[in-house]
Each structure stands twice: as C-alpha cells, then as structure tokens.
Amino acid sequence: MRKWGAWAASAVFIYIVYLILTLWTGKLGLWSPGELIAGAVIAVLGAIPLAEVVWKRGDARLLQPHRWILFIFYLIGPFFLSMARANFDVAYRVITGKIKPGIVRFQPHLKTDFARTLLANSITLTPGTLTVDVDDDTGEFYVHWIYVRNPDPRPEEVCGPFPAWARRIAE
C-alpha cells in the first residue's frame, strides 16, 4: 500500500513537469492529445525508479496541501530575505577578508529525511554557514561557520528560525 502511494506521488510529479514543458503545443486546447498520452506513459514508467530512490524514508504527511502553502510562503518570505543578507555578508567578507572559520556541531532534533534536507539546503544558502555533514543516525548537523562566535552553539545561534520552519513544513 505504502509502495503504491509513493509510486502514485512520483508519477503525478513527473506528469506535472511534462505538462509544463509541453504547454501550448495543441491547436485548440492547451495540449495536443499525443502529448497527453506520451506524458502519461513516461510518468507511469519513470515513477518506478523514482519511487524507489526518493521515498525510501519518506513521509505521507508531505502530501497535505497546507504544508505546500507554508513552503511557498517560507520561500518568498524569511528564506529570500536571509539569502539577500547572506550575499551582502559574502560581499563584506570578500572586500575586508575578515574571517574566523570553524566547523561546529549542533542538534536540531529533526527526524524525517525531508526536514533534514530542507534545513541543510537552507543553511547552505543563508548567511555565513555551510552544511558539511549530517549524521544519519543521531541527526546532528556539522556546519562550517565562516565567523565562529561560539564553539558550542545552540541551533538558534547558527541558523535562526530555520529549524522551527523545517519542523512546521515537513514534520
């Protein structure tokens, strides 16, 4: 049952990407019938390997729509703002050369794979931090910090509100 759900979700994802790529190919409607059929065949076949890889330790809660709305809000709100700040931070350090790097460890208490991926990618794109390694068993993050203020930080000191957001969106 779980396996079929993972397969169906992957197939829907592939089909949506295919439909975006072939939009405005039809004469009357938006899609020509040939494209619709070809896309369905590709989605059904391509979902078999994709479901094996992506949903190995997935979570059905990702399919709840209010999480997607939260995710889009997160992308254009807090995430985009801190990305802009990150770039001015890099500009400042390129010009002044003021760095004090180090690799610190912290424990954000996230359990699912998707939440960890989301937090790791957010950390990489936001000010002064870069995810180097994630311990698969304990969920500890090893983060390269370009200006270390505290060798044993709490999660909030390194990446602000992001662990809370990752929990809200993916757990």
Binding site: I99, K100, P101, G102, I103, V104, R105, T117, A120, N121, T124, L125, L130, T131, V132, D133, Y142, H144, V148, P151
Partner: peptide, 29 residues
C-alpha cells in the same frame, strides 16, 4: 545547495583541513 554540500563533505573526507579554523568538531568525531 545539494551539490555544494556533497562537495564540502567529500573535501572533508578527502582530508582537506579548513585553513585557520578555531574549532573542528567533525575532525574530533
């Protein structure tokens, strides 16, 4: 970001040390 994370982890496992690091918890592990 995923690709750069993979490269950072690979660099650390290949034994490249961060220059002038004040702390390296991954090395201690």
């Amino acid at each position: 970001p995923t690709g750069s994370h993979a490269l950072a982890r690979a660099a650390h496992r290949a034994g490249v040390k961060p220059v002038g690091a004040v702390v390296d918890r991954l090395e201690e592990k």
